[in-house]
Nucleic acid binder design. Structure first.
Lengths: 329, 329
DNA sequence: TTGTAGGCGTTATCAT
DNA sequence: ATGATAACGCCTACAA
């Protein structure tokens, strides 16, 4: 039922090297013999065995992609970007969900090494030393998306500036009491950078930083909803909330609507990411748009360049974000 | 920098067969030699080459999963289910986005064959004869999720009954004018089955079927939004709309809110799928919940059973759906 | 232009 | 308990 190159060779009455040559069209082979081989291939329904091939030529045309969780709105979009360009360059991708669990990250990394992937794309909000060492020690090219570390290749946006812009926008709209729901404090990207942008925007506007307007969230809807309730149930509630992720922001929207607070008249809300749903909920969500698909596509493009030993103009790619004004602000 | 089993053998002063035995602990080896080998492995940072291993033992511990589009809300959830149980059984997964494009489906299928995956999970709304033939001709086990064909193993829900239930629920609530936004007419699952459920529910209630209340949608937000507008801008508009996917239903919600139509007082909306956002939008969406994660998890479980040559109780798994009543109805 | 043969890194059979 | 050695299916000098 399953044939190999030898079977084809026998059937076509040639040697296996000739078969190999025609299926890879690597060297000239006489048209006549070529035809014979092709016929044999088709008759037998022969498919070359990529595993054997990989063993010999030492590359697998597959890459691994490590992300926190595919069922989190943000990642499918970037994975799609990765896959599309991977596909263009004839790579397949191993999908690995790490749940931001250091153990899982290390474990998956080991598996990808054993399976001889040609490269790895890594997303995760923090790279502990443990993992970093493994990254350095291995000779598989790795590119980071949405995070950064040492001198590893990465594609990111300027999170600090982006959130600073968003908060400044709110302030310019006349808001004096602007609250923030951040990510985890230990998370350098969503926790630290986006909060820092908030702080700088306040400072630049001469507004006072107020602990009471800062809430630590956890990325997902629920923590946004809870944080929103807390903020909105205070005496002197904020008139605007900058939320460090869209999913949390959608939670804030719900908290506000449940209290019959008019958006945006009584409360302006700005999110971050521009996930698909941001433009679909009602009222639609103003947000800092990360170019998620591009981050994936470009990250993969960078990886292919490394794999092809093309020169990179820059190991650190900084992509443009944009602000999308919708109904919520 | 990269060592193989030979290097380890040399370093440990044993033969490669011994090394192989300890890393697979396949046969008894004297504790002392075992220790030596383990030490050598660690000192060299040796990782077995899974490709070479696969070539020899003829399985790759990887499976392929073909889905329409990971950036479509519905699929990440099921992919996560697949990945979680795949991981339990030490499989890795190749992610393949087909965009429901027959060409791509066939192409990916060929690649997966060449890469010697142990099994395939397939999702897609229609299996043309072309593809079906390829499926049959190959000896890689395939399990279908959310769709069905011939006697191939599959895991699905009863779409007809589910939508019939949903529409009946609406009718029982007193609605006489119930509209539907379906999937594509040629799609046996979302287009045909879910519409048929609608038709049967009407008939059972003695309600008349009215072409004007039936709109063909295209799964995504926009077609729901457009369909909703069309339905709501008629003279004698429906008081309830059953929408064959949540994403479209969220579009209908927006169309209604833009017209200041009160949900659910003036218009009840019921979706299908129970994607993550269904419970998060405002008003939250009543819907027929497909157990997406379970569909993935169980689909993969079925596949492992086939791969382990365990007996399947049933090649056709029918999962339970449930109706979730939220604010929109 | 075509064929022969060695080797990619494993596993597994067969001796020892 | 351990070691040689022949596959696994393919690619690629090298030879013819």
């Amino acid at each position: 039922m399953k044939f190999n190159i030898k079977d084809v060779a026998r059937k076509a009455g040639v040697s296996i090297s000739t078969v190999s040559r025609v299926i890879n069209d690597s060297k000239a082979v006489r048209p006549k013999t070529k035809a014979k081989v092709i016929e044999a291939v088709e008759e037998l329904g022969y498919k070359p065995n990529a595993i054997a091939r990989s063993l010999k030529i030492k590359n697998t045309k597959t890459i691994g992609i490590m992300i926190p969780d595919i069922s989190n709105q943000f990642f499918p979009e970037v994975v799609r970007g990765v896959e599309d360009v991977a596909n263009m360059y004839e790579y397949n991708i191993f999908l690995c969900n790490t749940d931001l669990d250091q153990e899982k990250e290390i474990q998956y990394f080991g598996i990808l090494e054993e399976k001889q992937v040609d490269g790895i794309i890594f997303m995760g909000n923090i790279i502990r030393e443990d993992l970093a060492k493994r990254f350095e020690a291995c000779d598989i090219p790795i590119v980071l998306i949405g995070t950064d570390y040492g001198d590893m290749p990465s594609v990111t946006i300027n999170n600090l500036q982006a959130s600073k812009d968003a908060v400044s926008y709110l302030i310019k709209k006349g808001h004096k009491k602007v609250a923030i729901i951040t990510g985890k404090a230990y998370d350098p990207v969503i926790g630290v950078a986006r909060k820092q942008g908030y702080i700088e925007a306040l400072k630049e506007a001469g507004l006072e930083y107020n602990e009471g307007l800062v809430i630590e969230g956890g990325y997902r809807f629920k923590s946004g909803y809870e944080g929103g309730k807390k903020l909105l149930d205070t005496e002197d509630r904020p008139t605007a909330i900058f939320v460090a992720s869209d999913e949390m922001a959608i939670g804030v929207i719900r908290a506000a609507l449940e209290r019959d607070i008019d958006i945006p008249k009584e409360l302006a809300i700005v999110g971050f990411d521009n996930i698909d749903m941001a433009g679909k909920v009602y009222p639609s969500l103003s947000t800092v748009a990360q170019p998620m698909y591009e981050m994936g596509a470009i990250g993969m493009r960078v990886l292919t360049k490394i794999l092809n030993e093309e020169m990179l103009e820059d190991r650190k790619v900084l992509l443009n974000y944009s602000f999308i004004e919708r109904e919520s602000s």
